[in-house]
Computed example of a mutant assay.
Amino acid sequence: MHEFQLPDMTCGHCAGMVSQTLQMTDPQSKVQVDMANRTVTVQSTEDRATLAEALTEAGYPPA
Rank of each mutant, 00 (worst) to 15 (best):
M1P: 07
H2E: 15
H2N: 15
H2W: 14
E3D: 09
Q5F: 07
L6F: 13
L6K: 03
L6H: 07
P7Y: 07
P7K: 09
P7I: 08
P7M: 09
P7H: 07
D8V: 05
D8R: 13
D8T: 10
M9H: 07
M9A: 13
T10Q: 06
T10D: 05
C11M: 01
C11L: 00
G12Y: 00
G12H: 01
H13V: 00
H13S: 00
G16Y: 11
G16T: 11
S19M: 10
S19R: 08
S19H: 07
Q20E: 10
Q20H: 08
Q20G: 08
Q20C: 05
Q20N: 12
T21N: 12
T21Q: 11
L22V: 05
L22P: 01
M24L: 13
T25M: 09
T25V: 10
T25W: 03
T25C: 09
T25H: 03
T25N: 06
D26Q: 04
D26W: 02
D26F: 01
P27D: 04
P27Q: 06
P27Y: 04
P27I: 09
Q28F: 00
S29G: 04
S29K: 02
S29N: 08
S29H: 03
S29A: 11
K30F: 04
K30N: 06
K30D: 05
V31K: 00
Q32V: 03
Q32P: 02
Q32W: 00
Q32A: 11
V33M: 05
D34P: 01
D34I: 00
D34C: 02
A36W: 01
A36E: 13
R38F: 15
R38M: 13
T39Y: 10
T39K: 09
T39R: 12
T41K: 14
T41N: 10
V42W: 00
T45L: 04
T45S: 04
E46Y: 01
D47A: 03
A49Q: 13
T50S: 10
T50V: 14
L51F: 10
L51K: 02
L51S: 02
E53H: 08
E53D: 12
A54L: 10
A54C: 13
A54G: 14
L55S: 05
T56L: 09
T56V: 11
E57C: 06
E57P: 02
E57M: 11
E57I: 08
A58Q: 14
A58P: 10
A58E: 14
A58G: 12
G59M: 15
Y60N: 11
Y60A: 11
P61D: 05
P61K: 03
P61V: 09
P61E: 05
A63L: 15
A63V: 15
A63K: 15
